[in-house]
Write a protein that binds this DNA or RNA. Structure first.
Lengths: 189, 189
DNA sequence: AAAATGACCAAATGAGAATATTGGTCAGTC
DNA sequence: GACTGACCAATATTCTCATTTGGTCATTTT
């Protein structure tokens, strides 16, 4: 069997279960049934190995997002579904959730860097979708990069931070209604 | 002279200069030219003393915000000015800036609690202003609490977090334009 | 000979004892 | 009776030393 692939799977499993810092190369070697040295013939170091796994995570997330899109539906609805899916991904996907947790508690710098990379990817993905919608005249022309950033940060804020200052969680309908009445209303032609 | 007042000023100075954790009661006593025990005749404990100072900070901030408001101008403009003022306050005001820093680096729980309190106060202040604007038919009726939260989180995100993922800072005009074209455009009657 | 291995090493980390500081008290001073 | 600062338990910090870790490379396996 492909040793490289086995190592990737072992590392992915360990990162998902214990996080970046708590995963040792010895452990990865053991799970992959491989000598530790072998890992280094395929991956320069721990961080590079991690990077490759994060790239896979990003692809997975994009795939999950893409599945939420139904071209016949209005942009607003697709955008809402995609953003909610991504935020749900953040909580449900083992690896992503673990990294968010590690960043909050441990502040591992490598994890921090990688999470920023993921966020950048998300924002640029949304930005592309906005550009497409603008071309199709579904939206007014706008600073798509900025609007994407605004949407992402707003959704994160409402879903993840609202609980910090309020007792009850926000319902998805209330969030959808807010965006319908504010940002999207402003963006429609 | 008023001993209570002297203690407050000394504590305020020390909190601003060194943060909450690094400020010792001995130090406050020394700065205030007062025996340590005296502090405890006016304030139950360190946290209560801190609270009182934070309440003052909130008042100061509300005052600064209020000065940005010119009733003859449209809501949008006032809101932008108030929010920018608050964010500037976050960076410029010695005590507020120190607390934000301490929260980021040290994670002092007391500071965390107090910052949440300040944020709550800001959001509820903006929420009130929105309600007034709705009454005056300057804005559509809306979920003012949510819209205030959205505005605050968005502004914070754009001013404070944009730099994390991008090299150049956002200009104030670009921010203003974004909100004009999105959220506010949606809120206007 | 090419690929895989695991004993090995310097550097980082962790445990935990020893020490110093801190928030808070209260017997005594003024 | 307002005020003080030596005092105390509890927490925090520093220091030490043993362990663990990422990464290498001489040796073994295929």
């Amino acid at each position: 069997m492909d040793r490289r692939q086995e190592i990737l799977e072992a590392a992915s499993k360990s990162f998902s279960l214990f996080g970046y810092k708590a995963t040792t190369m010895d452990q990865v070697a053991k799970i992959a049934n491989v000598g530790k040295g072998t890992i280094y013939t395929f991956f320069e170091n721990k961080e590079i190995l991690f990077q490759e796994i994060v790239v896979k995570l990003i692809l997975e997330m994009k795939l999950a997002a893409e599945q939420e899109i139904e071209t016949s539906r209005p942009f607003q609805e697709n955008a809402h579904n995609v953003l909610m899916k991504i935020l749900q991904f953040r909580e449900v996907h083992q690896l992503y959730a673990k990294l968010v947790e590690e960043e909050k508690e441990l502040r591992t710098p490598t994890v921090q860097t990688m999470l920023i990379r993921i966020e950048k990817e998300i924002v640029s993905y949304i930005s592309e979708k906005i550009n497409i919608a603008v071309d199709k005249k579904e939206l007014c022309p706008c600073d798509s990069e900025l609007v994407a950033f605004l949407l992402f940060k707003s959704y994160i804020g409402l879903v993840a931070d609202w609980g910090e200052t309020h007792d009850s969680e926000l319902s998805e309908e209330r969030i959808a209604a807010l965006f319908r009445d504010t940002i999207f209303k402003g963006l429609l032609p």
